[in-house]
Design a protein around this nucleic acid. Structure first.
Lengths: 215, 215
DNA sequence: TCGTGTGAAGACTTTCACAGCG
DNA sequence: CGCTGTGAAAGTCTTCACACGA
């Protein structure tokens, strides 16, 4: 069946990214085909959910056999718009920025780091990664426009999260991955995805303490 | 009205953690009272949702006035079970582990780092943070039991994520914050919260590319 | 038989609409 | 009035049940 993009649940998109990471892992281990049931088990969900999620975008499976791992990966990449390289920058090069710059997940997934920005004089000019220099934040605007950068990972200290995100939005950044732990408000032209590490522990704290109560 | 814990939406718990971070920020800025509408604006949601979320746990607001920031913070801390200190450990002390160990968000929120574990001989024995030594992963079991640690942040390389998480679960860890980017499967005794940075960029990639289509 | 794809039913969440109270 | 708390309606997402094909 054919769906309109507006019919597609948000959660589906997030799970798709999940499936993709699992498929990548399976491919590395030489798995060629996988059923919705097997994929579901690995993704902590259920088979129908997997099939439904995929069915929003097309019919990728073969009856009796399941899904071709490699083919399904390529289809998900098309859907997520990661078939071609997406350039991104890191803004705020402290511990977190360093971790992200070296995180192996990005390299294999067509996200290409193009620049790092900070305000610390001692960091600026250094080249922590082959070909990637740390630049002063004043240079962001020109750099983003010249290199047509769409995505930024925001890893500055909390107290400058808001002002920095506004600058990114004005420079033309279309998507901000906000890891500062502070909420930011930007123009509706720019999308924000929040990753808050502390929230993760709080969620665990709640559910661990509730275990034993009837559910 | 009184609700059973099983009636409470999962999303509500996650938003609660959000509200809490915002309230903390407001308190620092000297704000004493806030309406559901104001809080909603800061949390990227709407007023009814804020009130409904809170109403699952009690009646914390004052009509005509709104919510007392300090009081509401304390109530949310009770709900999330973070009124008393929660001890946690970091497992895998690479770039990401380092970033988490120094992340300011944890300290102010009653999450107390008690130990760091790795297998790298050059790291073991060091004391990167006052009072916190890096220990060998072999020591985890004894340490967790002796110090009654419930929570662990998993920041090892992907290829050892599964085996390490099993070890944590066996040692008695009740909640794992999984930042490895790999899916892990552990006994149902242990809860897992996944934070995958790459998923964030993929989500942004999808929605940025879909902007302009009717929604 | 085994596994996909999918309308329809059911469950869960959000939003509406309004009572209640300072 | 202005703002909270909450049943009920609307909307969204998940699960059921089954058609279909290898």
């Amino acid at each position: 069946m054919k769906y309109n993009y507006s019919d597609i649940p948000e959660v589906t998109v997030r799970r798709l990214s999940n499936y993709f990471h699992i498929l990548k892992c399976l491919k590395e281990n030489g798995v060629d085909f996988i059923s919705s049931k097997q994929l579901a088990a690995l993704a902590h969900t259920n088979a129908v959910s997997v099939r439904k999620d995929l069915s929003y975008f097309g019919e990728f499976g073969k009856k009796h056999i399941g899904y071709n791992v490699n083919f399904l990966m390529k289809e998900i990449m098309k859907i997520l718009n990661i078939s071609k390289t997406n350039k991104y920058i890191i803004v705020g090069y402290g511990n977190l920025g360093t971790a992200i710059a070296h995180f192996p997940g990005f390299k294999d997934e067509n996200f290409l780091l193009k620049g790092i920005f900070d305000i610390n004089k001692n960091k600026i000019g250094k080249e922590p990664i082959e070909g990637i220099k740390v630049m002063h934040i004043e240079e962001i605007d020109a750099f983003v426009k010249e290199n047509k950068i769409k995505f930024a990972v925001l890893s500055t200290p909390m107290n400058v999260a808001q002002v920095t995100s506004e600058r990114l939005s004005k420079a033309g950044i279309r998507g901000i991955l906000n890891m500062t732990g502070r909420h930011i408000r930007v123009s509706s032209e720019t999308l924000v995805f929040d990753i808050n590490i502390v929230t993760g522990l709080e969620w665990l704290s709640y559910f661990v303490s509730k275990k034993g109560d009837k559910r």
